[in-house]
């Protein structure tokens, strides 16, 4: 797994498979552009809602509009990147029912790679761009230092990895009940919705839950406090603001373990 040559080969296979789908989609170029631009505009409405909110209030949970943009964008970019690259895994129940998973299992590419690359939809990049735009705007209000810039990069990478783990981990439920895609959505997309706001709008018990049990506060909240130069409203120590990569690695490892267990207990379909 950790062998870099093998990883490069898997990445190559991912690119080969997804390139096929991109090429197929581009056969209908006009409709691809319409869907992509449409996706960009529709997801844009999301942040417009927050922006309108600020016409009536000066701060949300003690955070300015620009700071909220940084939080929203940070979570949004991470979510959208994870969704772009591994989001297809939420369809695994359908792949099981159609026997597609059996077909993938007899090919010399790791199953996870094939599942994530299957019917790869480049138009989901619209979401990445929209969130990146909001993040970029939020960034213009940050008092930059080299370490804050570095931390922002780490935050995006760790956040993406955390959503990546959530997508995979919760999709695995479908190995046991193939029609549980909504459960997974509640955690992935639901998690993204929660981290789109400053967590200071929630009661401290909720934040505790999002730190220790379902640790999506590490997607953007803790590192953002450091980048934005804010004190933690709930009094958590400063070092939690550097913990995101650790949490990400732990969650990815856990998700891969669940995945492996799911694959070994896979029952295929009768006849």
């Amino acid at each position: 797994m950790a062998d870099p040559r093998a990883l490069a080969r898997h990445a190559r296979a991912y690119v080969d498979i997804s390139a096929l789908w991109v090429r197929a989609a581009m056969a209908y170029r006009a409709s691809w552009w319409m869907l992509t631009i449409g996706g960009f505009l529709i997801t844009g409405i999301d942040f417009v809602g927050i922006w309108i909110l600020f016409h009536n209030v000066d701060a949300l949970g003690g955070f300015t509009l620009q700071e909220v943009a940084f939080l929203y964008g940070g979570s949004g970019v991470a979510m959208a990147l994870a969704d772009l690259f591994v989001g297809r895994i939420e369809r695994i129940g359908q792949m099981i029912r159609l026997g597609k998973l059996d077909q993938m299992m007899v090919r010399p590419v790791p199953l996870l790679v094939q599942v994530c690359a299957d019917e790869f939809a480049l138009r989901r990049i619209a979401r990445v761009l929209q969130a990146a735009l909001v993040l970029g705007w939020g960034c213009t209000y940050v008092d930059w230092t080299p370490s804050r810039a570095l931390l922002t990069g780490v935050m995006i990478a760790a956040g993406t990895a955390i959503f990546f783990a959530l997508f995979i981990g919760f999709a695995c439920i479908q190995f046991w009940t193939t029609d549980s895609a909504e459960v997974a959505n509640a955690f992935t997309y639901g998690g993204n919705t929660l981290t789109s706001y400053p967590l200071s709008v929630f009661p401290s018990e909720v934040v505790k839950g999002l730190t220790f049990f379902f640790p999506i506060a590490f997607v953007n909240w803790y590192p953002s406090l450091q980048v934005l130069g804010r004190d933690d409203p709930f009094g958590y120590p400063d070092w939690t603001q550097y913990l995101s990569p650790v949490v990400a690695v732990a969650l990815v490892a856990l998700a891969l373990l669940v995945w492996r267990t799911g694959v070994r207990q896979y029952r295929s379909t009768g006849s």
Binding site: D102, M105, R264, Y266, S268, S271
Partner: peptide, 13 residues
């Protein structure tokens, strides 16, 4: 029959 083949191919443990 299919179950046997799925084991031979590694699909089923």
């Amino acid at each position: 029959k299919s179950t046997t083949i799925k084991m031979l191919t590694g699909i089923l443990v």
